[in-house]
């Protein structure tokens, strides 16, 4: 299976990289990405610098990585890793973006949490949390502008936002109820 999958990315300009190269490239991205924005870095690294993917391959992977459940960066790593080296490539890419930062957050976290009882550090942390939420608002706003392209998608958006925020429905229940409707309508829409 691995050999067959290794030929998937044939229309990219470079031959498939070794598992080691793949692991190192994703490790570098995982550990240098802070506060988001890693998708743009991945594009520069894999399409522009290394030529492992074409623009089209990368962008279709990105669209799916963002719409499927899961962490975007992890999904994109899985997708790109799979294209290059099959299931093993996917696993290596996932491990490379997740494990080194996981150790980093334990190290930083345990240190900072010990200091968080200090009022100044506590206030700075609270400020960081608030500012990070501001970044989420901005991302959410962009996502909304991108997603609401007609009446049905706007209704799906509105029901999700109001259902979870105002009516305190479980987000899981909202997704379970609305996702099939949205995808089914998406299918019908493309048929016409």
């Amino acid at each position: 299976m691995l050999r067959k999958d290794a030929h998937v990315a044939t229309d990219a300009s470079a031959p498939p990289p070794s598992l080691l190269d793949l692991g190192l490239a994703f490790t570098k991205l995982g550990i240098t990405s802070i506060g988001g924005g890693v998708n743009g870095m991945m594009h520069t690294e894999f399409v522009t610098n290394r030529g492992w993917f074409t623009d089209r391959q990368f962008l279709s992977g990105l669209a799916l990585a963002q719409s499927l459940p899961g962490v975007n960066v992890a999904n994109l790593a899985l997708w790109l890793g799979y294209q290059l080296r099959g299931s093993v490539g996917a696993l290596v890419a996932l491990g490379a973006v997740v494990l080194p930062p996981a150790f980093a957050i334990l190290l930083i976290g345990n240190l900072v949490l010990r200091l968080s009882a200090d009022p100044v550090i506590g206030a700075l942390l609270a400020g960081l949390a608030v500012a990070a939420t501001g970044l989420s608002l901005s991302v959410g706003y962009l996502a909304m502008r991108y997603a609401c392209i007609d009446v049905v998608s706007a209704i799906l958006f509105g029901c999700t936002l109001i259902g979870v925020t105002a009516f305190h429905f479980s987000a899981l229940a909202v997704v379970a109820a609305l996702a099939p409707i949205g995808v089914a309508y998406g299918f019908l829409r493309t048929r016409h």
């Binding site: 799916l64 719409s67 959410g140 909304m144 997603a147 392209i149 999700t160 936002l161 949205g182």
Partner: peptide
């Protein structure tokens, strides 16, 4: 279809 149906939920 996946992107169409899931993107509004993601934004919400």
């Amino acid at each position: 279809a996946m992107v169409y149906g899931l993107a509004p939920l993601a934004a919400g």
